[in-house]
């Protein structure tokens, strides 16, 4: 066939990657634009939060700007006083207290539920329980806050003989109820991803069900479970209406579970409606918002990082 053809250098291989027609290219660009919109929103949120927050720290007609030291380290949040002070520390501690207590409650509950869903429940039960957990997650927070306020607070106040039922513990209970489905559902995904062959290996060596769960499945899905807990934590930290209605609302450093606190989120929700746009108070609230944003972003990035590592190691 080709024997008598003149010997010539063969052309190097060409790439076959499809070339898009202008229409196709336009369509792809449009979808890319949509995909970037989430990223763009994140960016815009940051820009607006920090821009508005910046107003607190710079000189204005209203007077000299607030110092960063005061904002971060002062316990005094008195934005409406004639001589206002804008310390966020008590609010941050308020947020951290309810978040930490709620996560202490929600972690065993959520992980237990995840274990039950992934390895204990039969397929029939699982088929019903998983949607039920999803429904629990979809109860609006204002309703949980309402129940905490109207039902649990008076009960707590009477039974424990407290000055108020609107306190760290009550808020934490309802935050835990909100965080549990997140932890349970993500935890179930992580546990279910452990391969059957590994489990069979453990059973074949004479391990019981719990021994298999605790010594094989939990270690294997540890980073997935951590991701679940961290995302639950982020959700509790950012939750607004429950703490606004149930945490009591006093801007103080809590000393016990029964003190009332004023977390960052509830401060924002309670005060933003009553402040003049552009006032120092308005800017101070945006500064709180920016702080909250950075805190939750930190948790989310950590969870994203863990999830990626988990994705890599399990595949």
């Amino acid at each position: 066939m080709a024997e008598d053809a003149p010997i010539k250098e063969k052309a190097p291989p060409i790439s076959l990657a499809p070339k898009l027609s202008p229409t196709e290219w336009g369509v792809k660009a449009f979808f890319l634009l949509c995909a970037v919109s989430a990223l763009g929103s994140m960016f815009l949120i940051m820009v607006f939060l920090f821009m508005e927050a910046g107003g607190l720290f710079f000189m204005s007609e209203e007077g000299p700007g607030v110092s960063l030291t005061e904002f971060f380290l002062s316990l005094d949040w008195y934005p409406t006083y004639p001589d206002p002070s804008y310390g966020s520390l008590a609010l941050v501690l308020g947020s951290l207290s309810v978040t930490m207590v709620s996560i202490v409650l929600a972690t065993p509950f959520g992980i237990g539920l995840a274990i039950y869903l992934s390895s204990v429940a039969g397929p029939k039960v699982r088929e019903w329980l998983k949607p039920a957990v999803e429904l629990l997650a979809s109860i609006p927070s204002v309703i949980l806050g309402f129940v905490g306020m109207v039902a649990v607070a008076p009960f707590m106040q009477n039974v424990l003989d407290l000055p108020t039922g609107l306190n760290v513990l009550n808020a934490s209970i309802f935050l835990a109820i909100m965080a549990t489905p997140t932890i349970a559902s993500l935890g179930d995904d992580a546990l279910s991803a452990v391969s059957q062959t590994v489990k069979d290996g453990s059973y074949a060596l004479g391990a019981t069900r719990w021994e298999t769960i605790s010594r094989v499945m939990l270690p294997a899905s540890l980073s997935g479970l951590s991701t679940a807990v961290i995302l639950g934590l982020g959700r509790a930290l950012g939750e607004t209406i429950v703490v606004l209605m149930v945490a009591g609302g006093s801007a103080q450093v809590p000393h016990s579970l029964f003190d009332s606190v004023r977390p960052l989120t509830s401060t924002l929700a309670a005060e933003m409606g009553e402040t003049a746009i552009g006032s120092p108070h308005y800017h101070a609230l945006f500064a709180l918002g920016a702080l909250l944003f950075v805190l939750t972003l930190g948790f989310n990035l950590l969870a994203f990082h863990l999830a990626r590592r988990w994705g890599r190691s399990s595949s």
Binding site: K10, A11, P12, P13, I14, S15, L16, A17, P18
Partner: peptide, 14 residues
């Protein structure tokens, strides 16, 4: 029928 065009990194000579 050029279905390999969609495979990433596909190259051809000849």
């Amino acid at each position: 029928n050029r279905m390999n065009d969609f495979v990433p990194g596909a190259r051809l000579a000849g």
